[in-house]
């Protein structure tokens, strides 16, 4: 088994270095002659200068079905074509594609390339998980139903702070209870929301974001 890296610059260099350090055989294909020279100097990998989506180049790689094939070019269409060739012609099961435009995750899956990595969506998830929005919200129930129950901390800057419930418009959701000073309030229309309150909210899953906007403000 060997590892094939198609295209990409820094990312292919770091991946190649990592696999080599772990004792794998690594082949790297790159379009740019300059970069190939650099890779050849730095890494003990087999370096091939050429277009990794071109069958003529792939033929030289002596691909086997148990190889790991990773397409890392900055163009999703090139990664797609390389992985399709690896899978269809060389029967490689582990054909993995870098996905630049996260919207393409679903596209690749529908076309049949299921092993994909999207750095943008991974970063986005990490950012959202640590962002202020999520800090204010604790999800109480996440099962497969289309309902969501969660807790939102209200502070002074919340758009609903010091407003009466009847003046707050919530689409597809209700405030089930307010936790204030260690006691609970079942709210009515004339109840005021105060800073420091914790609201228990029940909403449709797809409305969660609009509920965030209502209570925390534009994020």
């Amino acid at each position: 088994m060997k590892v094939i890296l198609i295209g990409g610059e820094e990312i292919s260099y770091y991946l190649g270095r990592m696999f080599l350090n772990r004792g794998y055989k690594v082949t790297m294909v790159n379009k740019k002659p300059q970069y190939c020279k650099y890779l050849a100097k730095k890494l003990k990998a087999l370096i091939i200068n050429g277009d990794g989506t071109d069958n003529k180049v792939l033929e030289q790689l002596e691909l086997k079905s148990d190889d790991v094939f990773i397409a890392l070019t900055p163009r999703d269409q090139d990664n797609l074509v390389a992985c399709l060739a690896a899978r269809e012609i060389y029967k490689i099961e582990n054909a993995i594609s870098l996905i630049n435009d996260p919207e393409n995750l679903e596209v690749f899956e529908k076309i049949g390339i299921e092993k994909t990595v999207s750095p943008v969506s991974i970063m986005a998830k990490a950012i959202f998980a640590s962002s202020t929005v999520e800090k204010h919200i604790k999800s109480l129930l996440t099962d497969s139903s289309d309902l969501e129950i969660f807790e939102i901390d209200i502070n002074e800057s919340s758009p609903v702070s010091r407003k009466q419930l009847k003046n707050i418009e919530i689409k597809d959701g209700i405030i089930g209870a307010i936790k204030r000073n260690n006691s609970s309030i079942i709210p009515k229309g004339d109840t005021y929301i105060l800073p420091g309150d914790k609201l228990i909210i029940i909403s449709k899953k797809e409305m969660k974001n609009s509920v965030y906007n209502t209570f925390i403000g534009e994020t």
Binding site: L80, L84, V107, K110, I111
Partner: peptide
Amino acid sequence: PDDNTNIMIALTVKKY
């Protein structure tokens, strides 16, 4: 004018 782009567009239109 690019084969790979055409392949991806065609497959996306068809499968997605």
